[in-house]
Design a protein around this nucleic acid. Structure first.
Length: 478
DNA sequence: TTTTGAGTTGTTCGA
DNA sequence: GTCGAACAACTCAAA
């Protein structure tokens, strides 16, 4: 008599290393059936965007290949997840399902419904710590509430101590006698076809577990030591670029954490600074878990009074990188081409949309959602609200980034702007971040005619700043 | 309960 | 160009 197989339902944990659900399934000794379900039905407004779907395709292909190296494979199903899982249980005779947790409100609701339905049907269901170092409900204030400010949250995390040791990649996965039917990945049409806009993504990224670990190692070797010093510089590989790999769970935050501990013991610099960024990711998930309306509603309700402007033309100029502010436009081009944007530039473009154009942060969050390869509901919502001022940010004042000044500070030699806006490449550094201040002769020498080759600024900084501050007064008066 | 200290990331102005 | 001070002045978390 053959043993009943165990289902491992993969979601945002597309890896073999440090995968608690997978390791637990393997250690039962039973045959393991790895499955991924494409389930857009439960995603509400937050069905994965174009860039994210491209990444998912590549990552699933990579996971299938790794599994095949272990004598297994990835079974693909689509439709409502609960139905897909119970179909598979019936087809395979399995009576056990393992998965790693998700922390988004709709996913939590869906998964707990599935769990109770399956348990009612006599199925053994186990969920494991997912893609976080700390479960959101384990970090509590002295009053037993969730944290609303980053620094004390980070201290509380550090008091918990290092997360569990990462689990090894299983040696082999026992295969079932018969494999259940699987969808064809290509049939899901996650990749763009006509037009194929994914060329820039292919050029910049290697999705999958192997690509994730290579990226991390390259970061450790080349950039960690100088991270604290140069991370704000926009040009070059100054940051880890691990965000999309972390979102899809191709590398676990626990294994990153432990590796950082080792490097720190060996005397590496900047470790604390980088770990703080990982904790920002934890904090965003903590906030989303405890405040499920974070992606939709102002976290601080007083911001409901902010006089937002509905300006489709300005939104379009922002999206397409035609605001006339080179740093903003370079960032939006980087995003469009590569599915990514440097962290500091994200703050600048977001501040520009919200404060200079007075457009609601939701429109910015929507655009990022569709274009970022690292689109992540918790990070996206928490970060947009942070920039807007409506989110978790203890600073008592209304910050308005000056895109010219930010460019001069963090892209002093103009390498970032010139890379993404080659039309400005011959403009001298002195005028690069504010082309409208350049004398006509300088513009002419650089081959730039404003309004023809590159837009005039769509808003005046000083006037926009004054309008934003006036809008903020309405918020404050509540 | 009240108090106290502190908060990722800025900008502008004037010496 | 650089530097320090003024700006604004709220809310959280812990003692």
């Amino acid at each position: 008599m053959t043993e009943k197989p165990v289902l491992v339902w993969f979601r945002q944990d597309l890896r073999l290393a440090d995968n608690p659900a997978l390791t637990a399934a393997v250690s039962t000794g039973a045959p393991v059936i790895p499955v991924f379900v494409l389930d857009d039905s439960g995603a509400g407004d937050w069905r994965p965007g174009g860039a994210s779907r491209w990444w998912l395709h590549q990552s699933l292909a990579a996971l299938d290949e790794s599994l095949r190296g272990k004598g297994s494979r990835l079974v693909l199903r689509s439709g409502a997840a609960g139905q897909a899982v119970s179909d598979l249980l019936r087809e395979t005779g399995a009576d056990t399902v393992f998965w790693n947790r998700l922390y988004e409100p709709l996913a939590i609701r869906r998964d707990s419904d599935i769990k109770s339905d399956l348990r009612d049907a006599g199925v053994t269901v186990k969920s494991f710590t997912g893609n976080l170092a700390f479960e959101p409900w384990t970090i509590r204030t002295g009053n037993d509430g969730p944290y609303r400010v980053f620094s004390p949250f980070m201290k509380a995390c550090m008091r918990q101590g290092a997360p569990d040791q990462p689990l090894a990649v299983p040696e082999t996965l026992a295969a079932p006698n018969d494999w259940p039917a699987s969808d064809e990945l290509d049939g899901w049409k996650l990749e763009p076809t006509t037009p194929d806009w994914a060329g820039g993504l292919r050029e910049h990224w290697t999705p999958g577990e192997t690509g994730a670990h290579r990226r991390f190692e390259a970061f450790l070797d080349d950039s960690l030591d100088s991270y604290a010093k140069v991370r704000d510089r926009m040009a070059g590989e100054t940051t880890s670029r691990l965000s999309p790999h972390l979102h899809f769970g191709e590398i676990s935050v626990r294994s990153i954490w432990r590796t950082l501990d080792h490097r720190e013991a060996e005397g590496a610099r900047s470790v604390g600074k980088f770990r703080a960024e990982l904790i920002w990711r934890e904090f965003a998930h903590h906030l989303l878990f405890h405040y499920p309306t974070l992606p939709e509603k102002n976290w601080r309700e007083s911001f409901d009074a902010f006089p937002w402007v509905d300006d489709q033309e300005a939104l379009k100029a922002w999206q397409s990188g035609k605001t006339g502010y080179p740093l903003v436009d370079a960032g939006m081009r980087e995003l469009w081409v590569s599915g990514y944007m440097h962290n500091r530039v994200r703050m600048v473009v977001a501040s520009f949309l919200i404060k200079h154009l007075a457009i609601h942060w939701r429109h910015g969050a929507d655009w990022f959602w569709d274009t970022l390869v690292d689109a992540d509901l918790a990070n996206n919502a928490a970060s947009w609200q942070w920039v807007a001022g409506s989110g978790a940010d203890a600073a008592p004042f209304f910050r308005i980034f000056n895109p010219v000044r930010q460019g001069q500070q963090f892209d002093a030699d103009g390498a970032y702007v010139r890379r993404w806006l080659p039309v400005l490449q011959h403009l001298p550094d002195k005028y690069l971040h504010a082309p409208w201040t350049a004398p006509d002769a300088v513009l002419q020498d650089a081959g730039v005619k404003l309004g023809r080759d590159y837009p005039n600024p769509i808003v005046d900084h000083a006037a926009a700043r004054a309008r934003a501050l006036a809008g903020y007064d309405r918020v404050k008066s509540l």
